[in-house]
Amino acid sequence: MTNVARTGQTLLIVASSMLFAAFTSAMVVRRATGTDWIAPSVPVWLWAAALLALSASWLVMRGLYRPAALCGFLLVASQIAYAASLRMGDVAQSFAAVLVTAHAAHALFGACALWWKGERASLFWHFAGALWLYVLWLIGVWA
């Protein structure tokens, strides 16, 4: 990977991190100020989706970019299925929907990049994987 590509990806990662940091702080504040917080339920299969992200990262390290991208697409599909099941009238669920959908957008971008650009997109993919673990923790444990 060229330096320029690596720097660009790092900056993209910073911007994405800021986006999720903003969602997170909104969530922390909203939970503390409202009295209507009910923890969302996270189905087991969504936890299993974490395995998809991890295996994709593992495949990337093996140089198997297209299979990794396929894992990525599966992850996106499971995320969309979960987000679609949430009720926007409930605040904790609506935050979960925002976080999962925002992540799905990142994962889709990352998987497409893996498919077409291979190795050059690996850094971003690892970030997306770690970010997914964070999102799962946020909605499944913290909330």
Binding site: M18, L19, A21, A26, M88, S94, V98
Partner: peptide
């Protein structure tokens, strides 16, 4: 990035009943 987050949440309040 932070304004984008605020904008997304505002839009959802407007159109999705959050």
């Amino acid at each position: 990035a932070v304004l984008l987050a605020g904008g997304i949440l505002l839009l959802l309040d407007r159109v999705a009943g959050t």
